[in-house]
Amino acid sequence: MRIEEQNVGRVSVAIYSGLAALGAAAFLLVTVLTGDYSWVSGIGGAIWIFLLSMIILMPTITPMVRSRVRN
């Protein structure tokens, strides 16, 4: 798929948000499947995972997408 320069931000947001949400969902799934955790712990943990994942992925994904578009 060809990405325009002005769409870099939007594409990046979609990628890192998606990945972070995926991580959070995986976390939540594990808490549900193991059955040992309350809903609050599961959701709270998933939010924290999402937040940290976003912080890690935002500055990583954005330059990657930008450089790919420029190249």
Partner: peptide, 14 residues
Amino acid sequence: VHALALAVFVFWFF
């Protein structure tokens, strides 16, 4: 450090 904080959280949680 953020990655470590994430790993530490997951470790102590599970």
